[in-house]
Nucleic acid binder design. Structure first.
Lengths: 109, 109
DNA sequence: TTATTTAATCGTAATATTGCGATAGAATAA
DNA sequence: TTATTCTATCGCAATATTACGATTAAATAA
């Protein structure tokens, strides 16, 4: 198959998985780290930084944009990508909640 | 292709992506939530809870075990799955660090 | 012993992902 | 205008993922 049975799960579970899935590739982690650490967030600079082809990076950017983690700003011929505050904050909330839902004393085996 | 060029990225980036990728499926989120919220963590109970076949769930458990998030304890004919404290704590650290590496004032566009 | 229960694994099919080169389109420069 | 620059998208190939039924293997029960 290769198709995920999303209908079987809650909205919350699906969204959580979707966000984490977007982070589930080293190139996308590298892109996010670069965008955060640089003043520049121009697409071309990302392409120079990350050892993958321009088309591949464009695709990864698209995926990150799809879940909302980054947003693209067309500035003339260039596109500037940056973190979307709202979704980054959502991701922070989701992660904190998820991580804190377990504590070592819950251990059952 | 479909193959990830891991060699191009840092150990840290690859590990981060690997952990998030494991969380990037609603069934695996549901499994983790179930294991955390129930006293029971027996495989059969997970199969009863989650609307996917036994073999599919077994595969998801295998993936979670691969990155270390859960560990399985064979108890006679049953297997008890639970969170691996060390990896859960790693995930917590990784997430906190990653999330806090960006703050709204970094915005460049 | 033989049956049953439990969970892992195998085999298979369908779909998704990753990656690249080529191309297209839009904005700017010459 | 024409050329150039920049990025998105298309088309393709290779690999990965998801899902299921069937089977296997191991432990326990009858």
């Amino acid at each position: 198959m290769g198709i995920t049975k999303s209908t079987q799960f809650t909205k919350n579970q699906n969204r959580k998985a979707e966000l984490y899935k977007a982070l589930g590739h080293p190139a996308r982690i590298a892109i996010i780290e670069f965008v955060i650490n640089q003043d520049s967030c121009v697409c071309g600079d990302i392409v120079d930084e990350i050892p993958l082809s321009q088309s591949t990076i464009s695709q990864h950017l698209k995926e990150l944009k799809k879940v909302g983690i980054i947003k693209g700003d067309i500035e003339g011929v260039k596109t500037c990508y940056c973190i979307d505050d709202k979704v980054w904050s959502e991701l922070d909330d989701v992660s904190r909640l998820f991580m804190s839902s377990y504590s070592e004393k819950d251990k059952c085996c």
